[in-house]
Design a protein around this nucleic acid. Structure first.
Lengths: 218, 218
DNA sequence: ACTCATTCTTGAACACGTTCAAAACATCGA
DNA sequence: TCGATGTTTTGAACGTGTTCAAGAATGAGT
């Protein structure tokens, strides 16, 4: 019966995620997870090859919630600024309960060999899902973003999102309001910056930036 | 005799740094360092409170080398592009032997509590030294950078340097030539971008970016 | 009902970073 | 020379993530 197996897996994952949230990454030892879940340590390892894989589980869940929250928040937002803010704020709303966990998460995630690494191969699916959120924000925008930028824009915005997430991890202000201000400040600037692409002298530079992005991505 | 104590400290640090370079972060265990240095584990801990502090030792050394190499490379470079390239390439020249180590270094350094965290308080001195390199590059530039940008520019360039360093860590191409291409591509774009600040419509956006940077830095 | 292969579960064991009480050593004033 | 005081060194011990040989439970085929 596959259901029983899946049940144990979910139990371990749920206990781990709750402990991550409530007592943080370091205090959530594999032994503590196992004990709390009423299984042996080895059994937890049967379902998750490493503690990192439990972090990945959290990553996937947060991302699914972000996609759902973003889709809802995008409803009714027309211009790019509003849509970007919607998507970004939705992301940090979802991440809020895990703020204290963020530091350890990033330390894990930034390692090239980590399954959670957002640039790595192991998380291609997760990255695509995350990218799709930004593609959605850009493509549904009225007025539309400059045509020549539209292809690369979601990826660049996603990259900016990673940067803001890093800022958020370091943000010790209550409720991370400094991160919220950053979003509200930077998004209109991005939108205005993009509108500059029409100016001839500026457009050339934009083209070269895009060229560089393309050549470097390979 | 203070000399003997300092001698042990240097011995441990030198052995550790060499092992970091030669066999990487994980294989360089505290026990291995101690054994190779001919001291006990506890003795290594008497001088370095954690493995991270040995990483910090490496960080300081690499940075001192960077400052020296940059100063030399800046000699004779006049315009901002040339000076920036000089400084950046000098940095990665110095870091080259530690490339495989880079991933673990960044995972350590990105943790807000780490003594090596480039944004943290423990490394204010190190960050200032690193910033000074970029200040030097900007201030000695002929023609000079736009006046209104000159204050924040070194900090922004340093930030870009951190971003390129992250790219470098992931760069698996031989000799990290993709990172070198990125530098050669992005630097002229930065220089050209800055020259756009004179265009009225663009200048306003620049001003707002600077305002945001200032308001967020606190 | 009885194999037998597969899936699941266990807990002892390993190497690691780190801590700490105790020992060894050094320095110095009397 | 002798103790007293401070500095340096030691190695066993702790808790951690992870591994693994062994056993228990399950299920399919006869």
């Amino acid at each position: 019966m596959a259901a029983k197996s899946e049940q144990t897996r979910r139990l371990v994952a749920d206990v781990a995620l709750r402990m991550f949230r409530e007592i943080g990454f370091e205090k959530t030892t594999m032994r503590a997870i196992a004990q709390e879940a009423g299984v042996s340590v080895g059994n937890a390892y049967y379902y998750f090859a490493s503690k990192d894989e439990l972090v990945q589980e959290l990553y996937l869940q947060v991302q699914a919630e972000h996609a759902a929250a973003a889709a809802e928040a995008l409803d009714g937002a027309k211009d790019l600024s509003a849509r970007l803010k919607a998507v970004l704020h939705a992301g940090f709303d979802v991440m809020e309960p895990y703020h204290q966990f963020g530091a350890d998460f990033i330390a894990t995630a930034i390692r090239p060999t980590s399954p959670v690494n957002p640039f790595g191969e192991d998380s291609t699916a997760a990255r695509e899902a995350s990218l799709a959120i930004f593609r959605d924000a850009v493509e549904g925008s009225v007025p539309a973003a400059p045509k020549k930028l539209r292809g690369e824009l979601p990826e660049l915005l996603w990259l900016a999102y990673m940067g803001i997430a890093l800022f958020w991890v370091y943000d010790k202000s209550e409720g991370q309001r400094r991160t919220r201000s950053l979003i509200d400040g930077v998004v209109p600037l991005i939108a205005r910056g993009l509108s500059l692409a029409k100016i001839p002298g500026v457009g050339k530079v934009f083209d070269d930036v895009l060229g560089l992005v393309r050549s470097v991505r390979g």
